[in-house]
């Protein structure tokens, strides 16, 4: 990226807000991973590993 093409410069407040949003997204993604895991177990039961490949 050269000097004429630096793109957007975020203000300190924008960086702070972005950080809080990023943390929220991370938490939601982690919760979704957990949810998919639990629902998979519920729907497929303990036989989840016992299936033809």
């Amino acid at each position: 990226m050269n000097d004429d093409n630096k793109g957007i410069t975020l203000t300190e407040e924008q960086k702070k807000k972005r950080r809080s949003r990023s943390i929220a997204i991370a938490v939601i993604l982690a919760a979704l991973v957990l949810l998919f895991y639990i629902v998979t177990i519920i729907k497929m039961g303990p036989g989840i590993m016992d299936r033809p490949l």
Binding site: D4, K6, I8, T9, Q14, S20, R21
Partner: peptide
């Protein structure tokens, strides 16, 4: 965008 107008009004929303 050019540096003169490189102030972005977005990204201000908190959670």
């Amino acid at each position: 965008i050019s540096q003169d107008s490189a102030v972005w009004s977005g990204g201000m929303g908190s959670v």
